[in-house]
C-alpha cells in the first residue's frame, strides 16, 4: 500500500507552477473552480490509489474550517 508523497517529484517546479498559473489566472472565479474540479478529477484518476487519494483529500482539507 503506497501513501501520499511529501517529497518533491516534479523535475521543473518553477516551469510547472508557471504553467498552472497561466492556465487559471485569467479565469473568472466560476471558471477557475470548474478548472480545478476538472484537474482534480483527471489527476485523481491518474493516481488511482484510493489510499493516496484519501490522504491527499485529508491534507488539502486540513485547517480550512478555521479560515474565514
Amino acid at each position: 500500500m503506497s501513501s501520499l508523497k511529501h517529497e518533491p517529484c516534479i523535475s521543473d517546479p518553477d516551469g510547472f507552477y508557471q504553467e498552472l498559473i497561466d492556465a487559471v489566472q485569467r479565469l473568472s472565479p466560476d471558471d477557475a473552480l470548474a478548472f480545478s474540479a476538472r484537474l482534480n478529477l483527471l489527476l485523481a484518476n491518474h493516481i488511482g490509489d484510493r489510499t493516496v487519494l484519501r490522504e491527499a483529500i485529508e491534507a488539502a482539507r486540513k485547517g480550512l474550517e478555521n479560515r474565514k
Binding site: 466560476d30 473552480l33 470548474a34 474540479a37 476538472r38 478529477l41
Partner: peptide, 12 residues
C-alpha cells in the same frame, strides 16, 4: 460547489 464537480464529471 458540488454542482461544479458534478458538471466537471459530465464535461470530462
Amino acid at each position: 460547489v458540488s454542482e461544479v464537480y458534478r458538471n466537471a464529471v459530465l464535461d470530462l
